[in-house]
Write a protein that binds this DNA or RNA. Structure first.
Lengths: 138, 138
DNA sequence: TCATAAGAAGACAAAAAGGTCTTTTTAATT
DNA sequence: AATTAAAAAGACCTTTTTGTCTTCTTATGA
């Protein structure tokens, strides 16, 4: 469904929030190990998340990643859009550039309701709502 | 949703079936032009489709592509699976290797019903059912 | 204040996806 | 039989995705 970068981004951010709820600020090595992702690749992705203001970080000894209340809650749709674009939210399943109710591809009337459900999901769920859900990481 | 190869495969096959219904057997150049796909890449994809027995072809002058009744109808799910694998039908949205009702990722209970709808769609729709639907190609 | 632990930055590289082109084979038509 | 039109095969190339590594910067704590 999503590309690797998006998956790693979502898993990292949820892990960070889970640990924040426990009063901890995890670092890159811990995050990458826990979510089963390549360390340096995860670092790069999180750096972009920080630059976009989606999550905060602190350099130096005792540093790590954390959310501040100014930016949370963070919709997963915003993360997805920032990382891989909005094709999953708006694209045609048949790959047509122009496809809508008035000029539909042969899959349109079956696929559009599914795409709508995806849109609802990514608009409603947040890194915080996911972090509150008890769940495994592998 | 799907990768380029899958999109081109679906669009090609639907176009071939549409033309077959009119009593024609389109060739590669025509197909690629009509579905707005790169010619040689489409040729390669269709060759694989022929090798898998999903569609038939005839070489030489007056040749082209066609479906015979022995193999039709062809489920789009079979095409998708053959071209890009079944990740879209079975994969976890969070990217976890093991994710199910007893060991769910935080998105599982929201995403699983959507994945089910995708499964139903690709199991019910066929190249033939799509070819019978009046629709544009761009 | 100096050593150390952490993230930031960015160059580099491998693998996968996407795409192009030439040559070969096949069949129909003249 | 020769010509021509078509698909088959496969080498090759480009771009994007995914991943690695080294160096720089920053902050903490002894």
């Amino acid at each position: 469904m999503f590309n690797k970068e998006t998956e790693y981004a979502m898993r990292s951010l949820v892990y960070i929030q889970v640990e924040n709820y426990k009063g901890r600020r995890p670092g890159i090595s811990e995050i990458a190990a826990e979510i089963d992702a390549p360390r340096f690749f995860t670092a790069k992705i999180l750096q972009r998340m920080v630059r976009q203001g989606f999550v905060q970080s602190r350099k130096g000894r005792g540093g790590g990643f954390y959310f501040d209340s100014k930016h949370a809650p963070l919709k997963i749709g915003d993360v997805i859009k920032a990382v891989e674009g909005d094709n999953i939210m708006t694209g045609c399943a048949f790959g047509l550039k122009y496809c809508d109710e008035t000029n539909p591809c042969p899959l349109h009337f079956r696929y559009a309701p599914i795409r709508e459900k995806i849109n609802t999901l990514v608009a409603e769920e947040t890194i915080q709502s996911l972090a509150r859900r008890p769940a495994g990481t592998d």
